[in-house]
Structures are given as structure tokens and as C-alpha cells.
Nucleic acid binder design. Sequence first.
DNA 1: CAGCATAAGTCAGCGTTGTTGACTTTCCAA
DNA 2: TTGGAAAGTCAACAACGCTGACTTATGCTG
Lengths: 165, 165
Amino acid sequence: MADAPVGENLLFLTDEQLRQGIEAMFFAYRGFTSDPDRILATLAYGRAHHRAIHFINRAPGTTVNNLLILLGVTKQSLNRVLRTLIEDGLVESRIGTSDKRERHLYLTEEGKALEARLSDAQRARMRAAFRAAGPEAVAGFRQVLEAMMDPEMRRRYHAFREAGA
Amino acid sequence: MADAPVGENLLFLTDEQLRQGIEAMFFAYRGFTSDPDRILATLAYGRAHHRAIHFINRAPGTTVNNLLILLGVTKQSLNRVLRTLIEDGLVESRIGTSDKRERHLYLTEEGKALEARLSDAQRARMRAAFRAAGPEAVAGFRQVLEAMMDPEMRRRYHAFREAGA
DNA sequence: CAGCATAAGTCAGCGTTGTTGACTTTCCAA
DNA sequence: TTGGAAAGTCAACAACGCTGACTTATGCTG
């Protein structure tokens, strides 16, 4: 897997290939966010709300601190988003049982409904792209993306996924 | 290429696989932008400046209109960025010869120097990721990204690349 | 128990980057 | 010569990052 090209066949590492990869990443990310963005624009929410909703859905009961580390934003920034989501009844904040300083976050039914709308739209595009490219391409896609993350973020992400609540 | 799995082996299209793809895209994009962001932060520039510099470098002599369509922003938004780059002597704006309403954009030597700094950083990460994943994974990565773009953006992007000036 | 650390929330202010709307200037082309 | 395209400008606004300072509640440790 990691030992395919050693001395020959390094043409995929030319500057031109790398630049094309960079540009592909830029344009693909635009497509990636465009469908949820359209939905969010009708609701006075933005991408930050989407990200919060997404990860609360993925790990119900996660704490505010967990979430802001995962998202890589300050607590002030996250708090502004969480406050509106709680006020609007999409997210519920429960005081921790073992540690009462902590707030555990959950989606309400309404929050789950919006999460599903956003997720359906985003998954539809991802599904179409995966289907068009085929399973081997998808495996390569995942490999490259994993390698592109900061090691620290990759670690946090996997820890989050395994921790759940 | 497009006919690998027809009735069986569609496990790569499960909702869980799609969600993992979505999250990988989110975290990888963070890594993707982090190196240039660090450089830009020391210069009072942001990502919008980077994008303008990148595409002017890729297609010297492109017009303002070409650029704003490619970047998908309004002329007011692009103009604010271009103005600072021109004032700072990184970008040169030349009045068109055939059509004098048009402004053709070029990087100055100083602009090319910054482009190289930003690009070196971003390519280093891309190179490391490509190398770690291998050429077949890179091909798959590119295929999925291409399929994820809006068709209109993919068309514009390829047209831009071929047009040059 | 006293005191420090931690988790969360809040207020104020700021910067970047996107938006809309309205307007002017320049200039090509029918 | 007139309509429209291209470019630029001004104003206002919103989303969402940031820093800094502060409070409140709670947990932990000496």
C-alpha cells in the first residue's frame, strides 16, 4: 500500500499534479457545501450551525468543551451558535450528572429533523460522486483525505468517533 | 471505470460510509488550508487574497470578470481584495488593448514571491498526502473530487485552465 | 475547609469575507 | 448615437472567526 512507487512512476508528485489536486480540492469543497448552504440560507443559519448540528448528532451527549476542540473554534464562537440553536429548540443542553459543570448536548426532534434535511442533501451529492467514481476510487479518496489532515485533528476525530458520549 | 459494481458490493454507498466521507472532507479541508492560513495571518491577508493570487498566477492576464466567475464571488467582494493587493504592489492591473474596459491581472515579482511561499506550503502537505497514499489512491481522490463539483463549476474551471489569458 | 483549576457562559470589540442595492464612468458595437 | 457590458465605488449588513476580560458554578487538592 505504501510501497508502490519507489524510484520510478513518481509523475503523480509533479508540481503540476499537486496544483491540480489543490484546485480540485477547492472546487470540490464548494460543491460539497453548496447544497446545505442553500437550505441554511432560508433559515437564517450558516455553516457553523450545520457543523454543530452534525457533530451533536454524531455524538449525542458530547460536552461543549469536546465540541469546540473538535471544531477548532473558540468557546465564544461556538457559544453564539449554540445559544441560537438552544433558543430555537433544536438543541438541548443538559447539566452533567457526574460533573455538574459540564453541559451535555443533544438534538431535539426538531433538531434531528433539520439534521436529516441537511444531511440528506449533502449525502445525495456524496453518493452520486461515490457512485460515479466507484469503490476503488472512494478508497483512494479516503486515503488521501486522511493523509491530508493534521495528525492532531485526525487523532481528535477518531477519539470523538469512538467516545460517543 | 463506471461499471465496476452493478448489483453487489455497494457497501461503500451506505449512509455511514457517506457520513465518514463528509467528515473526512471537513477535516481534510481544514488541514489543506491551515499552512497558507498561518502565513497569511502574519501579513494581514486572508484566504480570499490567497485565492486571487493563486488563480492570477495560474492564468496571467485573466480579467476581473473571469476571476469573479471562477471564484464565485461578487465583484464588490473581489474588488476589495484586489484593491489591497494592487495597493500593496502584489498585483498589476493593465487596461485591455482590444477592449479597454477590461482589466487584465498579473502578479508582480513581489506577488509571485508570495504566491510561491503560499504554494510551497500547500504543495508540501499535498505532496506528503499523495506520497503516503500512493498513485492509485491519488487517481481515486481526483475522480471523486471531480464528481463532487457542480457541473457548471467543473466546466468553468476547465475552460479557465485551457484559456490561459 | 481554603484556594486554585476547570467548564461554561457572557459582554464588548474587531477583522475578514461574503451579500444586496444603487450609482457612476468608460467604452464597444449595433 | 444610443444601449449595454465591464469596471469601479459607496454604504450597509450578516456570518463567523478572533482576543480579552469577567462571572458563576463546581471539582479537586492540599
